[in-house]
Amino acid sequence: MKNSKAFPYLEACTLLEGSDEAGRRAFLDECDLRHFGDRSPVLTQGEPTDTLYLIVKGRIEVTYLDSEGNQSILHFAGSGEVVGEVEALSKLPCAASCWALPGTTVLAGSGELLVRHLLAPPLLASLAAILHDRLERGNRLKAADQFYSVDQRICIYLSHFLAVDTGEIGISQAYLAGAVGCARQTVNRKLGELREAGILDVNRGRIRLLDRGALERCCGLEA
């Protein structure tokens, strides 16, 4: 079955938004369908790539490694999101590493394929929208680190790492404490408060969101 028939919802993703139907479907159909049963690297920081990955289902973990060997989780990309498109088009080395988590399915295509099938003005607008979303995420975390209380920062980072499709938050409590810049005991206390309020479920180290609107209010942001 053609990719455009198997995954029609991908035609509405930001990358393809605004392009004509024939171009969207031709691009999807010429991409390679790949499934990852185990956690697998798809892009490596500092290395070039000709391939971009459009996520069909599952999640891709985006990480950055600094010169001192400190690794940061930047984002968990989900269904309809794309990674590697900037590098595939610019021919620049990957700015971060990307790992497909178990059970993830992607469509892999080249930058050349993208340009060949999608109209230039809509494609530029789509790429700008993707970059704008990434800038907003980064700005939100930068503001949180500078101006928000510890409790608010915990909520903001929980919201940032949320998988919208599953409601799960894919980081450990230890990583959350490091990202926020507080003791793990502080994270445990706040998670306990959120659990008692019916906002989160915490079970065997797994964190699942129950009430997103309430979590956003705890961030000090609009729901």
Rank of each mutant, 00 (worst) to 15 (best):
H132R: 10
D201W: 04
E17H: 12
R116H: 10
A12I: 05
L10Q: 07
H132M: 05
S172Y: 00
V86L: 06
S159I: 05
A177Y: 04
L215Y: 06
R208G: 03
L114T: 06
F27R: 02
R25L: 11
T14R: 06
A77N: 01
N70Q: 14
L141G: 08
S79K: 00
R116Y: 01
E136N: 07
G37E: 11
D151F: 06
H75F: 05
L221D: 06
A197W: 00
N203E: 15
Q152P: 05
A125S: 15
E30V: 04
T186L: 02
N188D: 08
A143K: 09
K2M: 14
G103C: 10
L107I: 06
N139R: 03
N70F: 05
D133V: 00
V82W: 03
C155W: 01
L107F: 12
S40F: 08
V180R: 10
R140L: 13
G167D: 06
G213V: 07
D165N: 03
I169D: 02
F147G: 08
G213R: 15
D151Q: 08
I171C: 11
V42N: 02
P93Q: 08
L194P: 09
G181I: 03
D211M: 03
K2Q: 14
R208D: 05
L107Y: 03
T105W: 04
P41M: 07
Q173M: 10
I55N: 01
T105S: 12
T14K: 07
F36M: 05
A26G: 08
V56T: 12
G213S: 11
E21L: 15
H132L: 08
G78Y: 01
N203V: 09
T44Y: 11
K91A: 06
T166A: 09
H160D: 04
G213N: 15
P122A: 07
L158D: 00
D211V: 02
A183W: 07
C94K: 05
A22Q: 11
Q71S: 12
A88V: 03
C13G: 15
S90Q: 00
C31L: 15
G103P: 03
F7L: 01
R206T: 14
A128K: 04
V106T: 15
T14L: 09
S72W: 08
Y64V: 13
G167E: 03
E216M: 10
L176H: 02
E11N: 14
S110D: 07
L92A: 09
D66R: 11
C155L: 07
S40K: 10
E168I: 08
S72Y: 05
L162Q: 04
A95P: 02
N139W: 02
G46W: 01
P41H: 08
L107P: 03
S126K: 08
L118F: 09
G205T: 06
A128R: 07
D66W: 12
C182A: 12
L43R: 09
R39H: 09
E136L: 11
E87N: 02
V83W: 00
D151E: 13
S4L: 10
H132E: 01
F36K: 08
A223K: 15
A197N: 11
R116D: 15
A163H: 10
D145K: 13
A214D: 02
R116S: 13
A26N: 10
H117A: 05
Y175E: 07
L54A: 02
L131N: 07
Q152N: 11
V115P: 04
V164N: 06
R153A: 05
A183S: 13
C31S: 12
Y175R: 14
E81N: 00
E30D: 01
F7G: 00
R189Y: 11
S97C: 07
L16W: 02
